[in-house]
Simulated scan of single mutants.
Amino acid sequence: MTRPAFHLAFPVDDLARARAFYGGVLGLPEGRSSDGWVDWDFHGHQVVTHLVAGPGLGAAGHGTVDGRPVPVPHFGLVLDVEAFHDLARRLAQAGTEFVIEPSLRFEGQPGEQWTMFLLDPAGNALEFKAFRDESRLFAR
């Protein structure tokens, strides 16, 4: 049995910058593409960056999690702890400006996790997180 995969589409205003970020900085393999979109293998899931002109890019607002503002809407991926820290280093080396720096939240609680938020070049909000104990992903 294969695991379920999701498909998500993001608006971007520049496919070359999207390729540099998603392919270069995040290191995602590129799939099919056209003059108007690029498919990315997002750890076994399909993320598509669609070229969109005009307004509508970026986060619409903020919610609050653990006392900190987080961009909404946002898209996230749960990684293992080692992959999370490897990605955090790669992002920092690329000069990424974090919305929320890589940090540990909910320490000592059932949902203890490493998290970081950043924006892609078009302003789409991304979250990456890692649970010390992945079996606690939905723990209360």
Score class of each variant (00 low, 15 high):
Phe10Met: 11
Phe128Gly: 10
Thr96Leu: 00
Gly61Ser: 03
Val70Lys: 11
Met1Glu: 14
Asp133Lys: 07
Ser33Lys: 15
Met1Asp: 14
His43Ile: 02
Arg105Met: 14
Val81Thr: 00
Thr96Cys: 03
Ala5Phe: 09
Ala83Gln: 14
Gly23His: 08
Arg68Phe: 08
Leu126Lys: 04
Asp120Trp: 05
Thr49Pro: 03
Glu101Ala: 15
Arg17Asn: 10
Ala139Gln: 08
Val72Trp: 03
Phe10Gln: 01
Pro121Tyr: 00
Val78Asn: 07
Leu57Ser: 09
Phe106Thr: 11
His45Trp: 01
Gln109Val: 04
Gly108Glu: 11
Arg89Tyr: 06
Ala88Thr: 12
Pro71Gln: 12
Leu28Ser: 03
Ala125Thr: 04
Leu79Tyr: 00
Pro73Asn: 07
Phe106Cys: 08
Gly108Ser: 12
Thr115Trp: 02
Gln46Leu: 14
Thr2His: 14
Pro102Phe: 10
Val72Cys: 02
Ala60Thr: 07
Val47Asp: 04
Ala92Arg: 10
Gln109Cys: 08
Gln93Glu: 01
Asp133Phe: 03
Leu28His: 00
Leu87Trp: 09
Ala92Glu: 09
Ala60His: 13
Thr96Asp: 09
Gly24Thr: 14
Leu91Cys: 07
Val78Gly: 14
His50Gly: 07
Ala125Gly: 03
Phe131Ser: 08
Phe6Tyr: 15
Gly95His: 12
Asp14Tyr: 14
Ala83Arg: 15
Val78Met: 09
Asp35Val: 00
Asp13Phe: 09
Gly54Asp: 07
Asp66Lys: 12
Phe138Asp: 15
Arg17Asp: 11
Ala130Arg: 00
Leu77Lys: 06
Pro11Ile: 13
Gly67Ile: 06
Ala139Ile: 06
Ala88Tyr: 01
Pro11Glu: 02
Ile100Gly: 10
Ala18Lys: 10
Phe42Gln: 06
Ser34Tyr: 14
Glu101Pro: 06
Val81Tyr: 00
Thr49His: 11
Val48Pro: 03
Pro110Gln: 09
Gln46Val: 07
Gln46Glu: 07
His45Met: 03
Gly111Pro: 00
Pro29Arg: 02
Trp40Thr: 05
Val48Lys: 07
Val99Cys: 02
Phe128Gln: 04
Leu87Tyr: 13
Trp114Val: 04
Arg19Asp: 06
Ala16Gln: 15
Gly24Ile: 00
Gln46His: 07
Ala20Tyr: 14
Val25Met: 05
Phe106Arg: 15
Val65Arg: 12
Phe21His: 10
Asp35Tyr: 05
Gly108Trp: 09
Gly108Asn: 13
Pro55Trp: 04
Gly27Cys: 03
Asp120Lys: 04
Glu97His: 06
Leu79Phe: 02
Leu79Pro: 01
Gly31Val: 08
Gly23Ala: 11
Asp41Glu: 04
